[in-house]
Structure formats: C-alpha cells, structure tokens
Nucleic acid binder design. Structure first.
Lengths: 313, 313
DNA sequence: TGGAGGAGATAGATCTGGTCTATGGATGAA
DNA sequence: TTCATCCATAGACCAGATCTATCTCCTCCA
C-alpha cells in the first residue's frame, strides 16, 4: 500500500527504552534480565538500522544525541501504550479489570442473573459488569450474534440459530393463577380450553413467556389473545391480583402470594409445566476471562446430560 | 523500579499490526516480506505471551476479539509513532528534513555563513536552518558546549576550551581605514602608535575584532580605547565615512569604498594583517546529517595542513 | 599514585528460535 | 467438481541473539 513496513527490529526499542530510562546500559540490562553485552549490541544494531548515532557514550552512562531525542519522543509514548495494553490484558486475566456484558429477560434476570451477578461483583469489584435488559428473546440473540454482549440467559422457547451455543442451567415450573374474583377456578383441575373463557393478562407479544403460553393453547387448536398486555411480570401479578384476568407465572415467584391467599393457583391436570432456562453464548467468539469465570463459577452447573439445541421444554 | 519489563516480544506487534491492518495473515506476510506460516506463528506466540485469544479465524480472514480490540487500540497508535520516528530519521538522513543550527558573529556571517547557507537551503529546502547571531565569541562557544547549536564560524582570537574542535576555513586581511577628513594618513606608511592620536570607532567590548585590534596596540604597550562603539561593522563604516574616527575593517569589505574614494586605507608597514576564520564544532557530540553535509560540502575545504587549537592569527 | 569499581566495547562459542518449504483441511466461487 | 484462498502444522535449517570472558577507559579514594 502506501507505506513500506518497519525498517527496524521492534525488539530493539525495548533496549532503547530502558537505556534511556535508566541512563546506563548495565541498568537497562538488569531490568530486561539480559546481560550488558546483549543490550550494547541491541543498541548498536538499532543505530545501524536507523543509520544514525542515538547515544553519546559518556563516562557515566549514555545520553541521547539530537537524533536520539527525536526517537525518544516517539518511542517513550509508544512503549507506554504497549505496556499499558499488556497491563490491561493481564488485569483482565486476573479478573482485576475487564468487562462482562450480560443480557436477559426480566424473568431470567430475577432467577439466575441477579444472584450470580451479586456474588461475581463482590468477588471481582474491578470488572465492569454491564447488564442489558431486553424483553424480546430475538433481540437478545441478535446481540450475541453481533458480539454486543458476552452471554445471555433465556427461557425456552427461543430460536437459537447458527453459531449460538446453549447450555441448560435450570428449570422453573409455570402455573396458571387467578385473583380473588376467579378463586373458584382453583377448586379443582380445569381443562385448558375452559380457561380461555376468562380474560388473560400477559407480557407483550414476542416475549418467550407469551410464546410459551400460546404453545399450550395451540395444542388444543386454540388462539391465545390476552385482553391485557403489560411490560413486566411484576405488573402481571398486580393485574391478576386486581382481577383483571388470569395469567401464567412461575410458581416459585407467586407461591408466597398463594400462601397468603392473594393469588390462586389453577390446576390443569397432567404433569407440571416446566420451562428450561439456557445460558447462551456465541459458539465461535471465545469468551473473555470475566465471562468464562462467570459461566463456570457463578452460574448453576449444567445437569448430568447437556442438551444441544433449545427444545420446547 | 515500579514496573516490570515487557512480557511480550515487541517484534510480534509488527505482525499484529499488519494482520489487523490488512485483515488476513497472507496479506500481512506479503507486506512484511515474510511467509504466511511465519506470521501465523508470530500471532500464536503473541497470543500465548499475552495469555488470550486476539483473533477470530474466520473463513475470509482474521477479525479481532474483544481483547484483540483492546490491544489494537494501543498498538495502532504505538506503531504509528514508531513508523513516524523512522520516517523522520530517514528524512534527516536524506537531508529531506531535520535541523541545522549555526551561529556566528556578523563578520563571519557575511563572509562564510551567508553564501554557504544560500546554496544549502537551495539544495535542501526541507532542512530547517536556524541561524543565531551573537556579537560575542564567548557566548557562541558556550552555545556549542551546551549543544544549543551544531556549529559556529568565528574569527580569531577566541578561547576554544576543552571538547571543542576547530578547523581553519579561511583568512581575511584587515586594515586601518579613515574617512576624507583623515585621508592624509593614507599618503605614506604610518607607525602604529601614531594612529592612537586620532579617535577610533569600534564594535563593542568583548567582540573578537575589538580584541584583535587591542592586541595590535598592546604589542606597542598602548591601550586601545575607542572613542565610539557601535554594534555592527556596517555602522562602523558609516561612522568612518563621516569622519567620526579611524577603524580596522576587513580589506575585502571596504575595497570598493576605497576605490570610490570614500574611504582611505592606512598602511602601517610590515606584513599584511591576517585573521583566520575557524569552523567550530563540539568534538564529542556527533554532527547530524545536515550539519555534516554543511561542513563537508558547503564550507571552504580546509587548507593543506590543519591547525589544532585557535592561534592568535 | 596505585588500585578498586563501574561504565561500555569486543571476541568467540553456543544454541535458541525465527524462517522457510511442503502439506493438509476448510470454505467459497466458478 | 474443481479451483482459489486462507490458516494451521510439521520438520529442517541456520541466522542471529545471547552468554561468558576479557579489555579499555574513567573516576574516586586511600
């Protein structure tokens, strides 16, 4: 292209840097864990390659010539840059710095991300952890594909396309719930189609929770069209408590409300409705040290058998 | 001291720089005049020394990982700095840049420096030539000792102390001159003591010209105390023409005025009064390319036999 | 004034490690 | 399919980086 490559062996600048810094070849050699003749020869080679004298050899050390000063004015900041880069990468290795960016939907955040992040930031306060909340699984998957974030935790169902790696990290049980007005539904198991007679409260279209519920009704050939959409599950709970409709919510999340008699769990018979949560990473972009530590040490270990793609679980 | 030395072989950054710049190892290898496996191994070694993966190996080349980007943010400016340093030094070699600083007294400037500088700046317009005029030889010698200037041209007498190198570059003939009022002094040779009956015009105390004239009178046990002091020889000439006194001036300089009958040369018998001009450099600070070219190619070559210290010539 | 100490330069032997050639695998284009 | 391109690997080779030992020069100090 426009420019010819370097005309020097960059390794020599290491010697140059420390000879100027310490003023003598001997001291520079100590610092570099080399011997004095080695550094002497490096300086000579550098002078030869640049075609000019860089140092005055005085009785008590080395001082820069005019041309040496010109070089030093560039080499000193250059070496500082390189040293700082090495320091920064080393800090990231030791989790004494670096970044970690995570995304998840609200539900995964409460269940998995929040507790893990709490321990992680306590153990590694110098790692900058960035969390991005996004209601839609597709958006989050895109962020991973683009390399915007290191990892995500999502509940099924979602379409993990190519390149994405998933790891099962837990299961939650979902259930239908009602407020006091519809408490009678909790008296006995109800067939699923019956429930659609009542209004429903849901998180918005596109969220995996909405898709999950839709899936359940679709098995009976029914369309799930909730009367009310709110943005967070917290609001869903409030709406249900105020009898605005039924909803599906994680059992663990509403158990206390059920115990207190504020909410009522509707049994639909059959096995418990389980949804699986997955750690999702880009299969081809290697994780940085912070992300590696986070998934290895701060997330629940994968169960006995791993699963490859994201099932409808 | 505070910091441990580099943990990488700086030479590898050359490969890193061009791999990022061109996007493929193959292209970087071309640019570096190396083979592809060599660059591959350099990148591997660098990743190993830094303890992290810097590149994603994709189908159509190499793209940076997050950690690679961190490194690139530092390596790119560092390499720019080093490349610019190499370019600058190379330009100085070819006299297509760089600096040259010269000092002299007024008289040497007219006779030697000015014509040489004219040719030099014509041949090497990109070299920044800085000329510093100083009336006192001692000041100029100090500037050389301090490394403030590369070289100086002075007329004897002066005290070149240690470390300074002198080279004879020419001789001028001095003579006493008078204006019309004292034209009669030019009729026949005059003994030196007689001249002191008349007023004298001189450059200031401390200049080598003043010292030179003093020396002449001292040989007769006489004190030279000029009635009038002006700062430049141009003003001396004007003063003499206006009959304010006699003066000593370079013969070459006033010959035309004498021919025109505006000035009159006073003969004092004996051999012509010659003063030698010397190029002065610092014996231990090597000259830069510009200064070297200037003394070697643009100043009068030294006569057959060189002289060591500055004589009273 | 002689000797110790500390600076850098030099010579020569050693052997590391950078470099090359040859080859293989993966991918995308024709 | 075949070809072109790109990167990784293996193995051989040898330039050159490194070390030890020694020398010179200078300063400082007894």
């Amino acid at each position: 292209m426009d420019e010819r490559s370097f005309s020097t062996n960059l390794e020599y600048y290491k010697s140059f840097y420390y000879v100027v810094k310490y003023g003598t070849i001997t001291a520079a050699a100590d610092c570099l864990c080399l011997t004095q003749p080695t550094v002497t020869s490096a300086i000579q080679k550098l002078e030869e390659q640049l075609g000019c004298t860089l140092f005055l050899r005085t009785k008590r050390g080395m001082t820069l010539t005019a041309e040496g000063k010109i070089l030093w004015d560039r080499v000193e900041p250059a070496c500082q840059l390189l040293l700082s880069a090495e320091r920064e990468l080393a800090a990231a290795q030791k989790l004494d710095g670096g970044n970690l960016s995570i995304a998840s939907t609200e539900m995964s955040f409460r269940t998995y991300v929040l507790p893990a992040m709490e321990r992680f930031t306590r153990d590694h306060p110098n790692v900058k952890v960035r969390f991005r909340n996004a209601p839609l699984s597709d958006k989050i998957l895109d962020m991973i594909r683009n390399g915007e974030i290191d990892l995500a935790i999502l509940h099924a169902p979602f379409q993990a396309g190519e390149h994405l790696q998933t790891r099962l990290i837990g299961t939650i049980e979902e259930c239908f719930v009602a407020g006091p007005k519809y408490a009678f539904l909790a008296d006995a198991p109800r067939p699923v189609p019956e429930l659609l007679q009542y209004p429903f409260v849901s998180v918005p279209e596109g969220s995996s929770t909405k898709q999950y519920v839709s899936g359940i009704f679709q098995r009976y050939g029914l369309d799930y069209e909730p009367e009310m959409e709110v943005t967070t599950s917290e609001l869903v709970i409030q709406a249900v408590k105020h009898n605005l409709g039924l909803a599906m919510l994680p059992w663990q999340r509403i158990r206390k409300d059920v115990d207190r008699g504020e909410l009522f769990r509707i049994d639909i018979g059959g096995p418990p409705m389980e949804r699986k949560a997955y750690l999702i990473t880009h299969g081809e972009i290697p994780l940085g040290p912070a992300a590696r530590a986070f998934v290895d040490q701060y997330l629940p270990a994968p169960p006995e058998r791993e699963e490859k793609a994201a099932p409808k679980g």
